[in-house]
């Protein structure tokens, strides 16, 4: 156990570039519009804020298990991974290219609070364009896999984008939601959502909860190699469905059923008990393998 822990390379703590280096086949990373060929955001410069030459996102070509893939990796350590004009346009370009060139998949390493407020309108519109481009790539038959496990999670418009992807692979440390707990606390009060109660935040937005509820397809360890094998395993068993009414009807039914059953709940503990987990309070303590075994044993 100690040896495997020592070998682990945390996804949560890694930069976007380090995640890509460990995710893709060695030597296959080929960046498009690398920092040397691009410029920092002029909108941030106007506000006397430091920019980044890649504007906080890396887009690249690469291979996963020798199959050609595209990857998009947001850098949570720059402006919280938030989407500005350049950042968004790079993502849109990669997704549109995927719809044309049809790689085996797009891996979307989401680590973002959503819209970059300093470029608010540009960011919101870019996220709308990303939403359309994800669905266009999928309609062209290209799976788009969201990988969520960074320090900024997937929030705001990027939470919506994550749920438009073919599937989400998440770690226990990953968080997925729309409004951040801090925003809800500011607007609705600390009684509504205490953003400093980290255990509560994880029971409402965290990877284990999203996996148990079926909002994320896979739960993996906080380890770059685990994300790599998770994405590989998911893609091996997946063929992208043609968009259809029947597919969305089924999704509609699932969402209506669970809203009817769980609308009054305010804590993951309540949902897990209702899902059939015998000891919901033990869930936060379970390791990844034990949680996956628990989920697979739940009544469907």
């Amino acid at each position: 156990m100690i040896a495997s822990l020592a070998a682990r390379h945390s996804w949560f703590e890694a930069t976007a570039r380090a995640r890509l280096a460990g995710l893709l086949d060695p030597g296959s990373f080929s960046e498009i519009l690398p920092p040397a060929e691009s410029n920092p955001s002029p909108h941030l410069a106007l506000l006397d804020l430091p920019g980044a030459f890649d504007d906080g996102v890396v887009v690249c070509y690469g291979q996963l298990g020798k199959r050609p893939i595209f990857a998009i990796a947001q850098e949570g350590q720059f402006m919280g991974g938030a989407v500005g004009e350049i950042h968004g346009a790079k993502i849109v370009g990669m997704l549109r290219r995927a719809a044309q060139e049809k790689p085996a998949a797009v891996l979307f390493l989401i680590d973002s609070g959503g819209v970059r407020l300093h470029e608010a309108n540009a960011g919101l519109i870019a996220i709308s364009e990303i939403m359309r481009a994800v669905l266009d790539a999928r309609a062209a038959g290209v799976p788009v896999i969201a990988l969520v496990g960074g320090s900024c999670g997937a929030f705001g418009g990027m939470g919506i984008v994550a749920k438009l992807c073919s599937a989400i692979v998440i770690s226990e440390e990953g968080r997925l939601a729309l409004s951040g707990p801090e925003v809800i606390e500011t607007v609705a009060g600390v009684e509504e959502f205490d953003s400093k109660d980290r255990a509560l935040v994880w029971r409402v937005t965290g990877g284990k909860h999203r996996y148990l509820m079926g909002d994320c397809a896979m739960l993996v360890e906080d380890d770059i190699a685990a994300f790599r094998s998770g994405a590989t395993e998911f893609l091996a068993g997946w063929s992208e469905p043609v968009p259809s009414v029947a597919h969305l009807r089924a999704g509609q039914q699932t969402l209506e059923n669970r809203l009817a059953a769980y609308a009054s709940y305010r804590d993951g503990l309540q949902v897990w008990a209702a899902l059939g987990v015998a000891e919901p309070e033990s869930v936060p303590l379970l390791d990844r393998d034990a949680l996956v075994a628990l989920k697979e044993g739940l009544p469907t």
Partner: peptide, 9 residues
């Protein structure tokens, strides 16, 4: 903006 809404994704 509510916790119960976020709980259900």
């Amino acid at each position: 903006l509510s916790r119960s809404q976020e709980l259900l994704c």
